[in-house]
């Protein structure tokens, strides 16, 4: 029986196209981790808010699609900054005890995800909304057709990565951000406005998640519950690539996407969502620092 290479190519392609979205969200998660030392469990809902903002701008206000992406990014970034200042700031600043920074932030993240999801539900209802964007005929690779929205997503992802890279490596503010990510106390002593930088980092991460949400809208429709599953996959991506590593996030995303599609294709389609979890757990057990991440030292 000859091996079906067309299908294999298709599966890998699917994995790459969805993986890039996981990567963008994972980018935000990694950014937050390197800047604030916390894992943000409400990031899936931020992604969902981004998608809804994009929908509102695009469908209800008639804004052209690229502008809608930008506007959604800005709005969601601002939303993120508000959340960070009002709720998370207290937790990340207070010192001592086991209820803070570690556990407190995680629990707060869960609570915030419930809050955000329900605010969205009360604002927009439980229905899934279609997000039609006319980009023309799909690409054709022989037998496989790929809607242009996937291509656009890949392009925008690369663009975002490039912009982020430029921002971090070539601008003064970017330098300040990297300093804060490396060591807050020293950065503070150097005269950097650390709280402002932290808010900026958080806002950036939320803007990235929003971009992912608006990009995925045409492919999957927009619904209040879309955040949870994306969060899991993005976490897997961030862990695989290495927490805190930005290129790692994208690579991790691609790997997760490919892994789950190949698993669904060749092992068992029923367990598709478990593959991402399995990868996550495997990496955490074997090499928690992931591919490019900082070495995770076990204290005792």
């Amino acid at each position: 029986m000859d091996f079906d290479f067309t299908s294999l190519f298709a599966f890998i392609l699917f994995g790459l196209t969805i993986g890039v979205v996981y990567g963008i969200v994972a980018l935000g998660i990694s950014l937050i981790y390197s800047g604030l030392d916390i894992v943000h469990f409400a990031h899936g809902e931020i992604y969902m808010f981004g998608a809804f903002f994009g929908l509102v701008f695009s469908e209800h206000m008639g804004v052209p699609y690229p502008l809608a992406i930008l506007s959604a990014m800005v709005c969601t970034g601002l939303l993120g900054i508000v959340i960070e200042r009002v709720f998370y700031r207290r937790l990340t600043r207070a010192g001592g005890g086991y209820t803070v920074a570690g556990m407190g932030m995680i629990i707060c993240g869960f609570g915030m995800s419930v809050v955000l999801q329900n605010i969205a539900y009360l604002s927009w209802g439980a229905d899934a909304e279609p997000f039609p964007v006319d980009l023309g005929e799909p690409f054709q690779f022989g037998d496989i057709s790929l809607p242009k929205s996937y291509g656009l997503t890949a392009v925008i992802a690369l663009l975002l990565m490039a912009v982020l890279h430029f921002f971090l490596k070539k601008t003064k503010i970017g330098l300040a951000v990297r300093a804060v990510a490396a060591n807050k106390d020293i950065a503070f002593l150097m005269g950097i406005n650390v709280p402002l930088m932290i808010s900026l980092i958080f806002g950036l991460a939320c803007a990235l998640a929003a971009a992912a949400g608006v990009l995925i809208g045409p492919m999957q429709s927009v619904q209040v519950e879309m955040g949870y599953l994306m969060l899991m996959k993005a976490f897997a991506a961030a862990v695989v690539g290495g927490f805190g590593s930005l290129p790692g996030a994208i690579v991790g995303g691609l790997l997760v996407g490919i892994f789950e599609n190949l698993g669904a294709a060749y092992i068992s389609p029923n367990h598709k969502d478990i593959y991402a979890f399995l990868l996550l757990i495997l990496v955490l057990m074997v090499r928690p620092s992931g591919l490019f991440g900082v070495e995770v030292r076990v204290k005792a």
Partner: peptide, 20 residues
Amino acid sequence: VAQVQEKEVDFRTHMQKIKS
């Protein structure tokens, strides 16, 4: 025959196999 999660969003792999 394939089982999917209630809120599944990505069916492309299934569709590819069904096409074949």
